[in-house]
Each structure stands twice: as C-alpha cells, then as structure tokens.
C-alpha cells in the first residue's frame, strides 16, 4: 500500500508541475533540450530518494530507478528548501552540505532554467474560470501578494526597531558587522603577538 500511495503522490505532483509548465513555453523549450536526462535526488534528513526524469518538454518524478543516472544531488530537506527559495543558488550550494556528482553541467543548466521560470498564472486561472474573471482574480492575487509582502516587511521593520532601539536587546546589522570585524582584527593581532612571544622565547632559550 505504501508503494501505491507513493506512486499516487508522485503522479499528483508531476501532473501539477506539468500543468504549471504548460503556461511557460520558454521553460518547456529549455527542458526539451535536456530530454532523457535523469537526476537522482537523495534527501538525507528525513531519508527519501526520488529521481527526476526529463522527457520531451515534461518533468517526470520517479519513485524507483535501478539504472545509471546523469547526475545526482544529495542533502538535507532544509538545504533543498533553501535552494528552492533563494535566488543566489550558488551561495546555497556552497554554504550547505549538499553533495553533487555526475554531470554538473546538467545541474547548472537546470539552475539557469529555474532562475528564468516565468509561469503565466493569469492564463492558467483564465483557462479555468474565463478571461475577465481570470484577470480580476489574478490582479487581486498580485495585489494581495504585494500587500502581504509589504505588511510582512513593515512588521519585520517594527519588531527590529523595537528590539534594537526600545528594548536595546539587539544590535543592528552594521553594528554587528563592525563588532565582528573588530573581533577578527583583535584575534589576528593576538595571534601575531603570540607568535612574536614564542619566537622571543625560542631565541632566549637558544642564547641561555
């Protein structure tokens, strides 16, 4: 039953992804160029494995694959989430403990495809509920999204101000960077001083 449920879940995700990609012809064209490539994705915490196959201009999710793959990527679930969310994917790959093997060019290419992903949600909604209501809903969603982002930024700013200036519990990022730089400089000077002392001790031991 577990196998059947897993297959059902993968089929549902795959259908949703390909339906969304139907509204991004440029991405589908790019995917067609990596046709028949297979990537193994191994999540270490929690332990899960799946394979992504590019077939024509579509994406297939496989629950099982016993043959060779073109590239593989492994890491913790939170690393994969960060990779999906962050715009600077290279930074995530370098800073996390993700492991990559095989054809890295394929992964670089995928990274660039993902960066240019531009799904026309408005067309998707319009196909379901009609052009005019679709446009209204899409506009409302865009407005809602901007409003939510604005509110979130405002709340974030207010909290930060409160913690930094009102309660004096936090320092701001400039202060943090300055303090970090001062600590690094002090550590560097202490190391030099220690080296000088050791050299002097050696010299004194040699002359006595």
């Amino acid at each position: 039953m577990i196998l059947t449920s897993r297959l059902a879940l993968f089929a549902a995700i795959e259908t949703a992804v390909n339906k969304a990609l139907a509204y991004d012809p440029a991405t589908r064209q790019q995917l067609a160029l990596i046709d028949d490539q297979i990537i193994a994705v191994r999540i270490t915490q929690p332990s899960q494995q799946l394979w992504v196959r590019f077939s024509g201009d579509q994406v297939r999710l496989l629950s099982h694959w016993e043959d060779s793959v073109d590239a593989s990527i492994s890491g913790r679930l939170k690393d994969f989430i960060a990779l999906a969310k962050e715009t600077d994917k290279n930074q995530v790959l370098m800073s996390s403990r993700m492991e990559i093997s095989g054809n890295t060019q394929l992964l670089t290419r995928l990274q660039s495809i993902a960066a240019q992903l531009d799904i026309d949600w408005e067309a998707g909604i319009a196909d379901v509920i009609g052009d005019v209501p679709g446009h209204w809903v899409a506009s409302a969603l865009k407005f809602g999204n901007l409003f939510a982002k604005d509110v979130a930024q405002s709340v974030d700013r207010s909290w930060r101000n409160y913690w930094q200036f009102e309660s004096d519990s936090l320092i701001n990022s400039q202060q943090y960077q300055q303090t970090s730089a001062d600590i690094a400089k002090a550590r560097f000077e202490a190391d030099r001083l220690e080296a000088k002392v050791q050299r002097l001790q050696k010299r004194m031991a040699a002359t006595s």
């Binding site: 089929a11 028949d36 016993e66």
Partner: peptide
C-alpha cells in the same frame, strides 16, 4: 484508476531510455 499507478511503476522499473 489505480491501474494507471501500477502501469506507471512498470515504466519506472523498465529502465527504458531513448
């Protein structure tokens, strides 16, 4: 509709490529 999932798994296990 579950027969579609059984067939999907058959495809996965086939290892068929271009």
């Amino acid at each position: 509709g579950v027969h579609r999932l059984w067939k999907r798994f058959t495809i996965e296990l086939s290892g068929v490529r271009k």
